[in-house]
Simulated assay, not measured.
Amino acid sequence: MYDRILVPTDGSDYAEASAAAALELAKTMDATVDVICVVETGPLGSVALPGDTASADDVLSERGEEYVTQVADRAAELDVPVTTAVREGVPVREILDYADDVDVDVIVMGSRGRGGISRMMLGSVTEGVTRHSGRDVLVVSSDSDPVSTDQ
């Protein structure tokens, strides 16, 4: 039924829970998992951080690499084939574009993630992906126990 599963991550507990669900589904379906982290770029992205030569975008991209690597490491432990990507841009658009680019069968996402007041007012990334995707989207409920990142 599903040969290729996309799981976006932002490093939150809810993204970790959705990654665990995606990996379990992939193991059951003998599917490949694509893990993506989208770094939101902004007007301050190219500004160097105080006392550092790295820009804010560079730091966020490094953090995104860490997030996808964590999921990829768990996939390797389960013998699930995995591909990772870190993209810059608007999360909903980048997730949908990636899903189209690699022709995934399903997108597995948490119902909450990193964000804040602006995210609540504008709507969540999960809501945007669910609303605009022509693909199946499996939403892992925020009522589920998030996976601890202290493992």
Rank of each mutant, 00 (worst) to 15 (best):
D3W: 12
D3Y: 10
I5E: 03
V7A: 08
T9V: 09
G11S: 06
Y14A: 14
A15M: 08
A21H: 05
L23G: 11
L23T: 06
E24S: 15
M29E: 11
D30Y: 11
A31W: 13
T32D: 10
T32W: 10
C37V: 08
T41I: 05
G42W: 03
V47L: 06
P50M: 05
T53G: 13
T53W: 06
A54L: 08
S55Y: 09
S55P: 02
A56L: 08
L60M: 14
E62L: 12
R63V: 14
R63C: 10
G64P: 01
Q70F: 11
V71E: 02
R74S: 07
A76Q: 10
E77R: 05
L78I: 04
D79C: 14
T84P: 13
R87W: 04
E88Q: 13
V90K: 15
L96K: 03
Y98I: 08
A99M: 02
D103E: 07
V104I: 08
V104L: 00
D105T: 04
V106L: 05
G110F: 03
R112P: 12
R114P: 10
G115K: 04
G116C: 13
S118Q: 15
S118F: 12
M120E: 09
M120N: 11
M121C: 07
G123H: 03
G123F: 13
V125R: 07
G128S: 12
T130Y: 10
H132W: 15
S133H: 01
S133D: 03
R135S: 02
R135M: 03
D136P: 12
V139E: 00
D143N: 01
D143C: 02
T149H: 15
Q151P: 11
